[in-house]
Amino acid sequence: MIKRAGYSGALIAGFFSVFLLAWRGYAGADADWVFGFLAVFWSLIMMLRLMSLTEPLETRQVSGYLAQKIINSLREKQESTRRMLLEGAFGGSFVLFILAGISFALWQVFCAAFPADAPTLDAFSSTLDAFFGRFPQSSIEASFFNDPRVFEWSQGFLLFLSFCMMAFVLRSHAADSGMTRPALLVLCGYAASGLILCAGLNPSSSVTVDSAGLLGNGAGAMSYLLSTLPADKGLSFFDMLLLESGVVGLSILTFLLFVPLGYIALTAGQRKTDPLVVTCGFIAGTVLIFSVFLEFTPIVCGVMALSSMAVFMAWGASEVPALELDRKRI
């Protein structure tokens, strides 16, 4: 019962995060706290899950040698199952996922430190500098977090941390096939419906390439890249990544998605995973890939987060059987 409650709680937390992320898109700067809140929220859920996986099991004393031996044997088995679950959820390909995420963060820092197309800003910067030069610089405005670039990067990093923790919690729960199958079906249904909604409605254009300007974030090929995009096109997540992080950042993020999908494919090839899990994993992965190319709006952001949940769950369900767990005892 408690196990089911934990599973349901993790799913509800995931849905709540999806709505919060989408709402944040509409609220803008008034909802700066959302990324911090999500990190705290998921860290608490992760700690609860870790406590349930690491707290010592109580040894029940019974009369009779055989009965005690059976109980001890069951306890040892439960201990080893929990250990394997912890190692499976936080180890294996998850390490690769975290390393790819950290590489992307480092690349973003590099891009922020050495912006490739910074000279293109000079035209207007000189006008602003001339204006601000009239007045003395205030120490309040020179604070570290007052740099929009630093703030955006920090929020992106927090979001990555939240997704890592979400991935751990969902992966550790995914061994319960009785709950994972219906949960995956629901998640895939919502994700696919969201994609159809977003692609079919074709909302009015938000940010165009014209408005995006030419500020490369160290990618070094912005002028070339922009010339390949139509001027009146609304920017997708893919376009924004390309403009901000260039091909290198895009490649790292593609690898980040490849880790779970590749693992699902690998285990499917070895016929170790439930076909339903594989199918749902790939439907969610496909929705995620399609969403990346749609115009970036809060609803698309929500669909992407929802698809990520389904991918994490299918990833966990694919990786845990490889550890040959006794599913009935988890």
Partner: peptide
């Protein structure tokens, strides 16, 4: 592994708490 996982959760919690209080340049 448990130590690393707890470290990640604690680090994220602390960072998240900081960012709950920091306002963006736009909001400021």
């Amino acid at each position: 592994i448990a130590f690393c996982a707890f470290f990640l959760a604690t680090f994220s919690c602390a960072l998240g708490l900081v960012f709950c209080m920091v306002k963006s340049p736009q909001a400021k």
